[in-house]
Amino acid sequence: MSMSLISYGLLAGLAIALVFAALSDIRSRTIANRLNLAIALAAPAFWWASGLSLWPGVAIQLGVALAAFAVFAGLFALNMMGGGDVKLLTALALWVSPAHFMQLLLVMALAGGALTIVMAAWHVMRRQKDKLKIPYGVAIAFGGLWVLAINYLPQGLNAVQAA
């Protein structure tokens, strides 16, 4: 996949959208459908700008997104995940390669675990009786931003990968 200036502009837009998703989830424990839809609808422009072929490239991206939706919708049905989180992960699956999506899920899980520990400690310290709600969009956004920084920045700007 070759990267052009348009590709980097679209990735910057995705990074901004991920920050908005995280902030929205912190503030209201929701991720707007419009934001998820915008992320998903911008993916074909990224495919075009980065020279992704229709077959098998786009087909694989769509397949991974469909599989992600099926798995995470199942978790939503079991009340283990929020609907906005399912839609955000599905939209992100349209952007990154399957290997990078697995990396995103791993980083997301680690960040989500750390976030859960911090939120649980804060919840206990404040002696709150209500159910703990984790803004998991923060962990998803962190995983997405991590993958973008590690895998999609140009080599000259990618100081994280060099370390």
Rank of each mutant, 00 (worst) to 15 (best):
L145D: 07
G144N: 05
A77S: 14
Q155C: 08
L148K: 05
K133T: 07
V147H: 04
I150R: 10
V96D: 02
F76Y: 13
A109N: 05
N151G: 12
L14I: 03
L66W: 10
R126E: 14
L132H: 06
A99R: 15
M81N: 08
L106G: 04
V86M: 07
K129S: 11
G83L: 08
V19D: 06
N151T: 12
A99N: 14
A38P: 04
L35G: 00
A22N: 04
M102I: 12
G63T: 00
L110V: 13
F72M: 10
W48S: 01
S4M: 13
A38E: 04
N151I: 05
A162Q: 15
R29D: 02
N158F: 10
G9H: 04
G51C: 09
A114P: 05
V124D: 12
N151H: 14
D25H: 02
G74V: 06
M80R: 15
G143P: 12
A149Q: 13
P154K: 15
A141W: 09
V19W: 09
L62Q: 01
G74Y: 06
W48E: 01
M119R: 07
N158A: 12
T30R: 14
A43P: 04
W55Y: 03
L35A: 02
W122F: 09
T30A: 12
A163M: 15
A32D: 13
L62T: 00
F69L: 08
G137I: 05
W55K: 04
H123T: 03
A111V: 11
A73L: 15
F76Q: 11
F76G: 10
V19K: 07
S97V: 13
L10V: 13
L105F: 08
N33T: 06
A139S: 14
S28V: 10
V124A: 14
M125G: 05
V71C: 11
L62P: 01
I134K: 08
S7Q: 09
A121L: 15
L157I: 09
W55S: 03
M3T: 07
K131R: 15
V96Q: 05
L132T: 01
M3L: 14
Q128V: 09
L62D: 00
L52D: 00
G143K: 06
G144P: 08
Q161M: 14
M108K: 09
A109K: 07
L5S: 11
P98H: 02
W95D: 01
I117S: 05
Q61G: 02
L54T: 00
G84F: 05
A109R: 04
M102W: 11
L110Y: 03
L41T: 01
K131S: 13
A43K: 00
L18V: 06
L157M: 15
T116A: 14
L104S: 02
Y152R: 09
A32G: 08
V124F: 12
A120D: 09
A109W: 06
V118R: 08
Q161R: 14
L92F: 03
W48T: 00
I140H: 05
P135G: 06
A38F: 10
L10W: 02
A70R: 11
S7T: 13
Q61K: 07
Y8H: 15
S53R: 00
L89K: 01
L41M: 09
A93M: 10
L37Y: 10
A32S: 13
V138L: 10
A49I: 07
A32F: 08
A114R: 08
L66R: 04
T30I: 08
L157N: 14
A149F: 15
I134W: 04
